[in-house]
Amino acid sequence: MTPTVPAIQLQDVKKRFGSLDVLCGINLEVDPGGVVCVIGPSGSGKSTLLRCIAYLEDDFEGKIYLEGDLLGRALRNGHLERVGGAALRKVQIKVGMVFQNFNLWPHKTVLGNIIQALILVKKMTRTEAEDIGDQLLAKVGLSDKRKEYPSRLSGGQQQRVAIARALAMRPRIMLFDEVTSALDAELVDEVLQVMKQLAEEGMTMLVVTHELGFAARVADRVVFMDKGVVIEEGPSEKVLKNPSQLRTREFLSLVTHEEI
């Protein structure tokens, strides 16, 4: 039996901003089709972790493998060297990312946001790209908004467009960075619903979230991070209901407003 190659594998990933250590040696694996939620207090390095995997932060130490391919680095004579260009793109393109603030381009319509990269990067014709765009808009339930500008949509709708935009590039792995934190409470569900559907379709997902209910229902595994370190990792049921570490317990009781 051949062992399955993890979709995401981090080996001793470290990242510092100036004198501040944000990630202090992260080791993490996500199986293909797995859904992993990363929880932890703000400033614990969760977002930075995702940004490294998306290669938005390129200046990290350690190794990140995506489906077995080294991201942004190559081993030459036993030394890790940075690579860019096509070698980087080949690996980076496996990842799609959705942000807390949607980051839709305000001067483009909903459809324009989705098809831009298909036309520029995948060199599709406008018609081909619009077909894909329309399919994805139907999937996130926004077909009637295709010609609207983002500023005319609610936060929940904007975030669903952002998810459709990321999916258009057919990523193998989706990263979600606190995608419901900027939303009004009543808009959170429509976004989580789309994410749940994606998970059921077998997408590999790494989700930074404060939605513990979502983590309990959808995630296979939960990672608790604090101060740049993975404190605890395990099946979501175990970590959320019966954590083995004191700091995990303290954090969970704080966010669920229980007494310690």
Partner: peptide
Amino acid sequence: DKGHVDAAKILGLNYFQTMTRIILPQVFR
């Protein structure tokens, strides 16, 4: 917004495409 550039980067747009399609149209206005 730097987030607009991040979004372009992760979708695979290169520097020139990001500048001409994402940044400058917003800047011109």
